[in-house]
Design a protein around this nucleic acid. Structure first.
Lengths: 371, 371
DNA sequence: CGGGCTTGTCGAAGCGCTTCGACTAAGCGG
DNA sequence: CCGCTTAGTCGAAGCGCTTCGACAAGCCCG
């Protein structure tokens, strides 16, 4: 393993000159630079990261703190990670992922106070996230993916839930749907103030009342079973529903399964729009899900760029940015069977069938099969 | 940020003594140790990782190199990662994940030759994996998750595909199935020698012929669409099939969707067993999938322990270990509708209906719905 | 044409730790 | 009672790099 000494000797310059060639901290003449680079190439020199870090007080490592629960990383998170890693690599930084959850505060403190990280990205941020406090206290540059309740002096990038929900509702209303149910994360998750859950809930209420419609939200556990239960609840509370917006990537599969089990077809009887979903996951369902595509990769890139700005000039201004998800229409949404196909905003509802759509659909389904 | 100097001064000992307390490299009297520890606590001292690394030529960081394709990390991989991270933490090491694929060889070389890693775990190993060559060349301790074609002098942990396939086939045969189709990864993946795909293919052939049955393998792209196509192919090539074993976590959903679309019920018309699947994913399907649970967390722990053994004594013997997946029966497998319910090994087949089961099933399905 | 710049290079002093050799004080068998 | 080992501690020499101050040139401008 060649050291800088070796390079300097071979190039017949001083160590500091070699260092300046590497870092560009001082001007170096072209002739000298060439000599040094040639020597480096010949020796296959690689700077020692530890020595660099010690001397410069910069590790050139950024941490991505991602809690790994048993659900794994969805395609959305993965896109985010790769986007961030690519951006970091371009800037000459390494991005390391650390599976540190809200529970491992000590591990986090250790990692951060050992000065191995120049900065950190926090994923799955809670409204009151103790990790934020720990890192701020240690003075580590920080960018959130998501938002805490109080975002004063904090940089973050997040999904624009308001706009995303509005677009999802708008899509269904434009198709003619009047009775739209929102399937959220679990009641517990909402109660503990998980941002995406509470923000979409509020946005849904606003969007629906804006269209003169009545908002109905159903919480669902993050599992297939939760989705099935949620559908049952939804049909009980709104037998005339024609569309469902689902925030819950896990529940949506159970929901679809239960829909099929009850003989309700998608999208003929019920349209389904999945929120914050990656194309890969949307395609898993049959029919493929109309979904709001999450801007994972862009979020990752922006987050890293923001973080690096903080790292370079410690007093950098904070940066807060929201990105909406883009609607991508696939097979799971269409006009309601009984509804008018126009996007009237007149706000009337309930002027249609007395027979619950569940029943109607069941009969229709049987008829079709017989053919 | 307190340094070791500060601690030494406060405890009225030399720096080296403080260091010995920390590392245990030399004996220290209890009295001195207590003084030092008290000083550390008072100053909230945290050793500087860079300095440590530079002086000791040990970073105490292990890398987990995981290619992140657009599919994301399944629950299986996640369990592996958390298992590994926990084991590393116990040993006083950090585990950092680096989203480095087979493409980023330069990035890998950079990371490894900068001496930031004491060792590495490689996931998603290809049969001829250039990453292995790079890392061996650099002399970095290495443990594979999966296997290359030539495993001489290489430590690895992997899933015991032979036993897993055998168990899956055994389960179905015991239920009375005779005509079992294996849906693998894509033809391309198999052709390029992806270990899990080729190993399970071979194991399937052996297991089936062992039961006196004819093995039929269908490749499928890693997507829902691939699953649908595969089902169509399977029904064409084996209209009398009563069970499917699927290796392909993505395709299995499309397969189920298509099964439903054709009016074939699971498990009554077709039993489905999913290979190497986590409980969380298995539960997503309706009905929940009978699956071979992957031993993710245990694999992670064992891999780290093996790696650490290599790190501590460079000449450590290699360690190669296989772990089988455990069969977990859920709703997607049951006795075949027409088959005898015993696990006879007589090897006869095709002594049943002339009408394709597809047709029969469709009529049955319609009948049930009418009720 | 001399003082003040900028440009390019060097030497040396660390960064905060580990580790080696050396030293002292016990402990112990002969 | 002497030499030997062992436990316990210290000082100093690095680990491989960055960075600061110094300095030699060359340049411009009045």
């Amino acid at each position: 393993m060649a050291t800088m000494q070796d390079v300097a000797r071979l190039a017949q310059v001083s160590v500091s000159t070699v260092s300046y060639v590497l870092t560009g901290a001082r001007p170096i003449s072209q002739a000298t630079r060439d000599k040094v680079l040639a020597a480096m190439a010949e020796l296959d020199y690689q700077p020692n990261a530890m020595a660099r870090g010690l001397a410069s007080r910069r590790s050139r490592i950024l941490g991505l703190l991602l809690p790994m629960d048993e659900r794994g990383l969805g395609a959305t998170e993965t896109a985010f990670v790769t986007g961030a890693a690519a951006a970091a690599s371009v800037a000459g930084y390494h991005l390391v992922l650390s599976p540190i959850g809200v529970g491992d505060l000590d591990e986090l403190r250790r990692l951060a106070s050992q000065r191995m990280l120049d900065g950190a990205l926090l994923m799955e941020v809670q409204l009151h996230d103790p990790r934020v406090d720990v890192l701020r206290e240690l003075g580590l540059p920080l960018v959130l993916i998501g938002r805490t309740a109080d975002t004063t002096d904090l940089s973050y990038v997040d999904i624009d839930f308001d706009q995303t929900v509005e677009e999802a509702v708008g899509h269904l209303v434009a198709l003619g749907h009047r009775r739209i149910v929102y399937v959220n994360h679990s009641a517990g998750t909402i109660a503990e103030g998980y941002g995406p859950a509470t923000r979409t809930r509020d946005a849904f209420t606003i969007a629906m009342t804006g269209h003169g419609l009545e908002p109905l939200m159903i919480p669902a556990e993050d599992s297939a079973a939760g989705g099935r239960t949620a559908l049952a609840t939804a049909l009980r509370q709104a037998p005339d529903l024609t569309a469902i917006i689902a925030m819950n990537e896990n529940a949506v599969f159970g929901l679809l399964g239960e829909l099929g089990g009850r003989g309700l077809s998608v999208p003929d009887d019920v349209s389904v729009v999945s929120m914050v979903t990656s194309p890969q996951v949307a395609e898993l369902a049959t029919p493929a899900l109309t979904a709001m595509n999450s801007p994972g990769s862009a979020l990752g890139r922006i987050a890293i760029e923001t973080l690096l700005r903080h790292v370079d000039n410690a007093n950098g201004e904070i940066h807060q940015q929201l990105l909406p998800c883009a609607l991508q229409v696939r097979g799971s949404s269409g006009p309601p069977r009984t509804g008018s196909n126009t996007a009237g905003n007149t706000g009337a509802d309930g002027d249609e069938p007395t027979v619950p759509s569940t029943e109607a659909a069941r009969r229709r389904a049987a008829t079709r099969r017989r053919a």
